[in-house]
């Protein structure tokens, strides 16, 4: 972390960024990795470690959180990483402490999400959980806006079939509405 800027200032800035976003990104990764909390925690922690390693660059990006999420997501989808993470998570956390059981609806929701093709699952989570607009999802995933809209429609339809959700999907270029309080 050489450079003109003071190390303490950078550390404080990173800490504030981490504190405000780590939990949120971890939960998003849980949904992206099929409900595996330990794996999500591991890849998110590694992504934040990498962010700190090059914080002078990452801090200047339009969305450092998007960078961390992208790195964590790519770590998570690597099969090699999946296999390795299982061992690392075991060593890091010891025997996994199971989180409090989710209620049946949440379990069904995660199961339906997990059953989606990855591209659809990523689009659904980024749009509906990370509150990104369709354009932002397209930017973060490197796809066209139309492709993201198509994946949202298909993913939502597939989940609806599982969850008996017949509501229509909002594929407009705006983040989905959701009360921000308490998050």
């Amino acid at each position: 972390m050489e450079g003109r800027e003071g190390g303490a200032g950078l550390a404080a800035e990173f800490d504030a960024f981490y504190t405000s976003s780590a939990s949120r990104v971890t939960r998003q990764l849980v949904m992206l990795t099929g409900g595996n909390l330990a794996e999500a925690e591991d890849v998110v922690q590694e992504a934040f470690e990498r962010a700190w390693s090059r914080w002078p660059v990452v801090r200047g990006l339009g969305s450092p959180e998007a960078w961390v999420r992208t790195v964590a997501r790519r770590l998570a989808v690597s099969r090699w990483r999946r296999a390795r993470n299982a061992a690392v998570a075991w060593r890091r956390h010891g025997p996994l402490t199971e989180p409090p059981p989710l209620d049946a609806d949440h379990v069904a929701l995660i199961a339906a999400l997990t059953a989606l093709p990855e591209t659809q699952r990523v689009s659904i989570v980024l749009h509906h959980l990370a509150d990104l607009s369709v354009t932002q999802v397209a930017l973060e995933t490197g796809q066209s806006v139309s492709a993201v809209k198509q994946q949202l429609v298909r993913g939502r339809a597939a989940m609806a079939a599982s969850l008996a959700d017949t509501r229509t999907i909002d594929t407009g270029d705006s983040a989905p509405s959701y009360p921000k309080e308490g998050r």
């Binding site: 990173f14 800490d15 981490y18 504190t19 780590a22 939990s23 971890t26 939960r27 998003q28 849980v30 949904m31 909390l37 925690e41 998110v44 922690q45 989180p99 409090p100 989710l102 209620d103 609806d105 949440h106 929701l109 995660i110 999400l113 659904i124 989570v125 509906h128 959980l129 509150d131 939502r156 989940m159 969850l163 959700d165 509501r167 999907i169 909002d170 989905p176 509405s177 959701y178 009360p179 308490g182 998050r183």
Partner: peptide, 22 residues
């Protein structure tokens, strides 16, 4: 308020926060 959006947020909020310190 989209039902799927709300459901995903509720499921995510039900997860414990075990993030280590910065």
């Amino acid at each position: 308020t989209d039902h799927l959006t709300r459901s995903l947020h509720e499921a995510a909020d039900a997860l414990p926060d075990r993030s280590p310190a910065a």
